[in-house]
Design a protein around this nucleic acid. Structure first.
Lengths: 121, 121
DNA sequence: AGAATATTTCGATAATCATCGAAATATCGC
DNA sequence: GCGATATTTCGATGATTATCGAAATATTCT
């Protein structure tokens, strides 16, 4: 993943509603969700949602396909992993220098099936 | 790490120059770097750089301390790890559903001392 | 074809952002 | 205290952003 793509992905996720949208799609899994369902769950105007979907799509974080009159959006886990990979490699090293804090090793993409532990907030 | 903090951190990193600044600080390690040195390495005007530092600082991604007439900025690895943790937990699950692509497990904060492998681009 | 549903496109608007030049502040060495 | 160095503050500016209402497009059903 090259830097411009990383910046684009970060920018796409750096917005309240968009982060919610993406998280919802992640939770929904590879099947994805129809735009309307996302709009309803997050209480977003359909045109505003289109705006956000476009940005997530431009950043390569989601895909769309049509199903009847619905548009089904789905998270691209591949892209998300590439992003995390970049951040990990480029923005989280030097940890062995760190004093006490810092760098609790953690696995990327843990199984976490059953309604994960509410994620703290 | 709560969602607003996550959004703030993502926004802070979602800018070309700022991502460079942060990466430089990460590379520099906990010791940090004087503002002037960062300005020089990245060819940024000092006032512009202050602007970016402020944003990184508001997002909790860097710290400052004064040393003589220099201001020394340093990356907060702790915050970076929290961010990666959030993304991993909240935005990278459902992987076991994923078909082939997706979710190559990787360690957060690998040692990576000797001038890491150029990071692809 | 015509009504209904799902989503997108268009145009406008207020807010935030990145950058700049000029001036201010803090610290050092003399 | 004075000149020099390092960085920040201030004010302005053009660009991008998120949201909205209204209209357009696509698809299904009858």
């Amino acid at each position: 993943m090259k830097k411009p793509d990383v910046v684009a992905a970060l920018a796409a996720l750096a917005q309240d509603n968009r982060l919610d949208v993406f998280r919802l799609l992640v939770e929904a899994g590879p099947e994805g969700l129809p735009a309307g369902q996302v709009a309803q769950k997050l209480a977003l105007a359909p045109n505003t949602l289109t705006f956000h979907f476009d940005r997530l799509r431009d950043a390569g974080l989601v895909t769309v396909r049509r199903d009847g009159r619905s548009m089904i959006y789905a998270a691209r886990f591949e892209a998300m992993n590439a992003l995390i990979g970049f951040l990990t490699e480029n923005c989280c090293q030097g940890s062995q220098n760190a004093t006490a804090e810092a760098c609790a090793p953690a696995a990327v993409c843990k199984p976490a099936r059953g309604k994960r532990a509410k994620a703290e907030a």
